[in-house]
């Protein structure tokens, strides 16, 4: 039947070969930074060496974890809300095309709002709790998801639609059988883009005012002249984004097996 995927060790070897250039370039950058910070005479309160950032991150790991948790929570809840809203609206737009012309300008304007200006306002209106963070995360991730989904529905092969109609399928059936699965590739492309915005959105909201979170942690560290701790928090948020990005890639592999298996032709002749 279907040829099995390559064996585990070979898979890891392939992964390593793919990751090697990225690891090397990042490593080189860190080495250069380390050398510059140590030998140029620059003060660690201006530019700390990566080794110092790492050391301080380890020393302050409890505080960092403590502050990362609210950020993760805001990111995930905000992103979930945004996904739900994007799904609901994309379906509405798909079924009632005129809505698209009515709504899209509003959403485009929402994307032009400078976060620096909006974040403090949202905090002012909704307080220091979870709510404003969730809203900001949703604001920055909603539109890319909506556009991805609507475009994905429209990428449905015309002939599949014609065939389903000839089979007697109604609009809802066609949507479920053809338009939704056709949008998957676009959905995951949108997911990868907006998940990277999501963490930044949450940190921005916290920066504008929060009891706890990576954003407020960065602000406090900066005010205490501790750039090493600012950078440690930046490292945590970067790691967080990378993990979420990796998760979406994994999810895509699981959700779209045909993209992987389909690449290995098995049919012979005619």
């Amino acid at each position: 039947m279907v040829s099995s995927s390559p064996s585990r060790p070979r898979q890891f070897a392939g992964l390593f070969a793919k990751a090697a250039p990225a690891v090397m370039s990042v490593g080189l950058l860190l080495v250069a930074w380390e050398l510059y910070a140590n030998y140029s005479g620059i003060k660690p309160t201006i530019l700390p060496a990566p080794s110092r950032v790492f050391e301080q991150a380890m020393l302050n790991r409890e505080a960092l974890i403590d502050n990362a948790i609210p950020t993760i929570r805001a990111t995930l809840i905000g992103f979930a809300c945004s996904l739900g809203a994007a799904f609901a609206l994309s379906m509405l737009v798909d079924f009632f095309q005129p809505l698209r012309r009515a709504l899209f300008p509003v959403f485009i304007v929402s994307q032009t709002l400078p976060l620096v200006a909006i974040a403090p306002l949202v905090v002012l209106w909704f307080g220091f709790g979870l709510m404003p963070k969730v809203m900001l995360v949703a604001l920055v991730t909603f539109f890319p998801m909506l556009v991805a989904l609507v475009q994905g529905y429209e990428a449905t092969e015309v002939e599949i639609g014609q065939m389903l109609r000839a089979m007697g399928a109604g609009r809802w059936r066609i949507f479920m059988l053809a338009r939704l699965p056709s949008a998957l590739l676009y959905f995951f492309a949108g997911l990868r883009i907006s998940i990277t915005y999501a963490v930044v959105g949450a940190i921005f909201a916290e920066y504008a005012g929060a009891a706890k979170g990576l954003g407020i942690y960065m602000l406090n560290a900066k005010n205490n002249f501790r750039p090493d701790l600012v950078l440690a928090a930046v490292g945590v948020s970067a790691a967080l984004t990378l993990i979420l990005f990796g998760l979406t890639a994994l999810l895509q592999r699981l959700a779209m097996p045909w993209e992987r298996i389909g690449r290995q032709p098995a049919g012979q002749g005619r």
């Binding site: 039947m1 279907v2 097996p257 045909w258 298996i261 389909g262 690449r263 290995q264 032709p265 098995a266 049919g267 012979q268 002749g269 005619r270």
Partner: peptide, 11 residues
């Protein structure tokens, strides 16, 4: 159990 992409045009 194959996906369409695994089949030849005739199949």
């Amino acid at each position: 159990r194959h996906f369409p992409a695994q089949l030849s045009g005739g199949m």
